[in-house]
Amino acid sequence: MAERQLHQALTQLKSQSSTLSYADASSLLSKAQKLLLQLNALTPASTTNPTLLGLARETFELGALASIRAEDYKVFTDYFAKLRDFYELPDSVLKPNLDERDKITSLYLLYLLTDKKFNELYHQELESLITRHGGSMETLEKHNFLGYPINLEQGLALGSYNIALKNNPVPCPDKSNVPYDEYAVFSEILTSRLRSTVADNTESAYHFLPLSSTKSLLFLDSEGAVVEFARSRNWIVKDGKITFRSASASANEAGKEAEEKETSQMIIENVLGYARQLETIV
C-alpha cells in the first residue's frame, strides 16, 4: 500500500520535474519520506528490502536535485548526507546508479567550492572520492561529472582563474561545456567569488589598469559594468584608467608614521622588559 503510494509520488516528481514548483515538489518529497519511514527504509539497514532501498535513494536524489534548482543549499546538504549512506552500500545489496551518484556528488563538490569556509569539507570529500576511484587522480580529473569541480578547484588553488572560469557557463552563453543544467545554478556564485578574488589580487599587483583590460581580467561584459564594479570597490576611474595605489599609498603614508611611533614604543617596552628581567637575575 505504502509502497504503491511511494511509486506514485516518485513518478509524479519525475515526470513533472521541470514544471513543478519547489513548494509542491518539497511537499511531495516529504510525503514520500513519510512513506519511507512507514516502510522502515529511511536509512539503510541490513534487513531492508533492496527495491525499497532503491526507491529511497531515488527519493533523496530527486530531492537533492529539486533543492539545488531552488537554490536551497541547506536542504541540499541534508539530502546529500542521507544519500551518502546509500552510496556506501555494497553493490550486492543495492545496485549503484553511477551516473546519478556522480552527478550529485559533483554538485555537492561545486557547492563546497562556492565558499572558502568549506575548503576543509571539500578536501575530506575529495579524499574519499580518490579512494573510491582506486586511488588515482587522473581518472577523477577526466571523469564526466566529477572532473569539472575538481579541475575548477585546481585552477582556483593555483590562481589560473581564466582556466577555472573557461568551463564556467556564464561568459559563454551556449552552456555547451557544462555537463548539467544544475551546474548553472552555481556558476553565478562561483563567478562572483572568482571576481572578488581577482579584484583583490589586482589591487595589490597593479598600480593602474586600462578599463579595457580590466574588463577582460574581471570577466565583465562591458566597460560600464567595470566602472560600476570599480565604484563598488572604491577604485578611482580617470582617463580610461583605473588607479589602485593612490588611495592605498596615502593610507600608507599615514600608516608609516603610526608605524614609526609604534616601533619606538615597542623598543621602549622591550628594553624596559629586559631591565626588569635583569633585576630579577642580578
Partner: peptide
C-alpha cells in the same frame, strides 16, 4: 597562457610570496 601567468603572478603578489608589481 600569458593570461593565466598574469593571474598566477597577481595571486602570488597578493599572497605575499613576492614583492613586485605588474605592468599590464
Amino acid at each position: 597562457s600569458e593570461e593565466s601567468a598574469e593571474y598566477i603572478v597577481a595571486k602570488a603578489i597578493r599572497d605575499g610570496v613576492i614583492e613586485a608589481t605588474l605592468d599590464r
